[in-house]
Design a protein around this nucleic acid. Sequence first.
DNA 1: TCTTCTTGTATTGTATACAATTAGGTGTTC
DNA 2: GAACACCTAATTGTATACAATACAAGAAGA
Lengths: 233, 233
Amino acid sequence: MTRTTLSSAMQNAATSDTIAQALSLAIHEHRIAPGTKLGEDELAEIYGVSRTVVRASLQSLSHLKLVDIRRNKGAKVASPSLTEAHEVFEARELLEPRTARSAAKLATPSDIASLERHINEEHAALDAADPGRALYLSGLFHTEIARIADQGTIAGFIETLIARSSLIIALYWRRESALCEKHAHHALVRALADHDEEQAEALMRSHLVDLHSALDLRERNVRAPSLKEALSQ
Amino acid sequence: MTRTTLSSAMQNAATSDTIAQALSLAIHEHRIAPGTKLGEDELAEIYGVSRTVVRASLQSLSHLKLVDIRRNKGAKVASPSLTEAHEVFEARELLEPRTARSAAKLATPSDIASLERHINEEHAALDAADPGRALYLSGLFHTEIARIADQGTIAGFIETLIARSSLIIALYWRRESALCEKHAHHALVRALADHDEEQAEALMRSHLVDLHSALDLRERNVRAPSLKEALSQ
DNA sequence: TCTTCTTGTATTGTATACAATTAGGTGTTC
DNA sequence: GAACACCTAATTGTATACAATACAAGAAGA
């Protein structure tokens, strides 16, 4: 059960990277909540590898700030503070509009098609009442734009910012605010397809501001469920 | 020789972090050239720890793109391609001017004093004919400004960009171009001290453009120097 | 002489054993 | 009942042993 949920796709040849990816995905999709303890033995058993490999994965994730490792205390899923949350979105507001502009210049028809596929998948996930997956795909949409912009270094930064955004959303998302992303993403794709750089940059900026303001960035207490609880669904 | 040079400062209590820091410093100061093989056993013996700890350090550095790890092939000091070199400096030109502006708003007298100390140390290193250390301190100057700007996330990005810049300079520095940094750094500190945001941003931008254009970033064959070459100079 | 295969050596990948540290509980004392 | 010390169990940190892979040198064959 736990085993199948997490490792189903990678029972064989579970290497450090695949485990990190699996955990990253689970965090992205909110199947593991911020603050959850990630015991080495536990993960080692789940993936059928030794602690050595698990440790490498966790270290990897800690460099992305998805996991928080403290000496002799073990690894937990990171829970970004309010300050960090603001910083992450401010950084995104600095980087992504510029990136969208570059993407508008460079986007090919096949890029556009790929983005539209993403949007469709995202809608499908929403229809299937799987908001976690929809959120993950929404992040992938942004990552894809960074990739199109052909600025690998900045794309790497954006990728980590999006990953952290997922944690921030898990902690601070305001339920009352509707998911207005459908429009935003569609409009963005249109601007990219038209090579309208100005419009793409502006749309991305306002989209991020919307996201930022849809967060309830006040201090609050969040309870972290155990790993078993999180994965039993 | 290599032994004492590298480990002198941290013979006792060599932990994963201290080793990563020592290697990072050595790379920053150009004591280890891009492309140099970093054998696990070799490093383990140098620092008097097991390969377990060394591996963690190398992984850490590979996340900063200072070290390139390939499965079953081991770790080498990274040698950024021309494309990466451009990307790194373009990213710096995007992030650092903005950061300098924030720093100008927030800089305290003690911050200014700290920056001036950095500059003095840098000059001392140049006078002592230690260009490697001068380069490291020059990077520290930029990192310090990012820290003053109080944007931890972006500061982290800048830190990795500066580290990679050091590799890029090692590979592509054009000897003919003079080190014009003295003026630039001094002028920047003055703008920060005066809280002149506009000026700080402009100075940082032109400083980075200067650096970028002082590189010989034309296509050419850059071969990774061998270990012998690296140590014989 | 050149090619190809084999074999040996060096190096990395993984698992396991042991040491060190922390956390939680038990009992004692005030 | 609260505070403290102590002990035990659980977890992480590190070293080492073994397996897998890659690299290089040399032998066999054409």
